[in-house]
Simulated assay, not measured.
Amino acid sequence: MSITVTDLPIIFGPPMVRAELDDRKRMTRRLAKRLVKTYPNGRKTPPVVLVERDSPWSKVKPGDRLWVREEWRVSKKWDSTKPADLPPRTMSVLFTAGGSIANTAAGWAPDLSYPPVGVIVPWAGRRRASMHMPRWASRLTLIVTAVKIEPLQDISDEDIVAEGAKEAFSQETAAIPGPAAYMAWQEKAFYAWRDLWVSINGQDSWNDNPEVVAISFDVIKANIDAIARAA
């Protein structure tokens, strides 16, 4: 019996994209449930009742492909053009996290060094939100390797590392001898990861300790459709 592979977009902020590019991040957590509006009278008019249902992330499985949406820009000449109306793969796409993707001798391929992080080239247009990035403009594809559902606060030390936290604190604790170094890192990394979650999802989301889908993945530094064409 063949297994159907599903392609899904997934949003990451610049720091998390940077961690994926630097091979530090290979796991992410997303809410397993979401509140959905329902209309008891059968029409889209009040009253409205919020019902908790499984989120799309709860259906992700190993082998699925996630194409990354991130903050981006194209040339100023396209500033008045909606993302859906941009002609695919005909222009360079620049990323807030650094780097770009464009047509090259190898095809539609990313350049991880141009422009550097924090540099906005003179011809770059307005910043565009990650949620509006079209599939063809994505430069990162995540191949799902494992999925588990657990309470948010049950994250393990190993998963904190996989979430990309370890590198940020290894130098700070390098001078501390013995087990104290690990304990110092563990505390710093855990609270840094918790604060990141709260900044994205809100304090209540942490306090409620909701079930989350922990998704492990391999990072492919290429557009999802470029991978398919190469295969």
Score class of each variant (00 low, 15 high):
E52M: 02
R30G: 11
L35H: 08
L50C: 07
M27I: 00
R65S: 12
P46C: 10
D23L: 08
V51A: 09
M27W: 00
D23M: 05
S55G: 07
R18P: 00
R30D: 11
R65K: 14
R29S: 05
E52S: 10
V49G: 10
K37Q: 14
V17Q: 01
L31H: 01
K61G: 05
M16H: 03
R30L: 09
D22L: 12
E20A: 11
P46K: 06
V60C: 09
R24H: 14
P40L: 08
R30T: 07
E20P: 01
A32C: 13
P40A: 11
R53P: 03
T45C: 06
V36M: 13
S58Q: 13
L35C: 10
E52L: 04
K37V: 02
L21G: 03
V49K: 15
R26A: 11
R43T: 05
D22T: 10
P40R: 05
Y39I: 08
R24N: 15
N41Y: 05
A19K: 03
D22S: 14
V51W: 04
A32L: 13
D64A: 01
P47R: 06
P40N: 11
D64F: 00
Y39W: 13
R24D: 15
L31W: 01
K44L: 08
K61P: 02
P62D: 06
P46T: 06
V17L: 06
T45I: 13
D22F: 03
P40V: 06
P62Y: 02
W57S: 02
V49R: 15
R65A: 13
S55N: 13
Y39K: 08
K33V: 03
G63Y: 01
P40I: 05
R24Q: 15
D64L: 00
M16A: 07
S55Q: 06
L21S: 01
R26W: 07
A19D: 07
P15Q: 09
A32Q: 12
P46Y: 05
S55L: 04
R18S: 04
Y39V: 07
L21C: 08
A19T: 01
R26I: 06
S55R: 03
P47F: 05
M27T: 03
K33A: 02
R43L: 10
D23C: 09
D64Y: 00
R26L: 11
M16C: 05
P15L: 07
E52Y: 01
R43Y: 06
P15K: 09
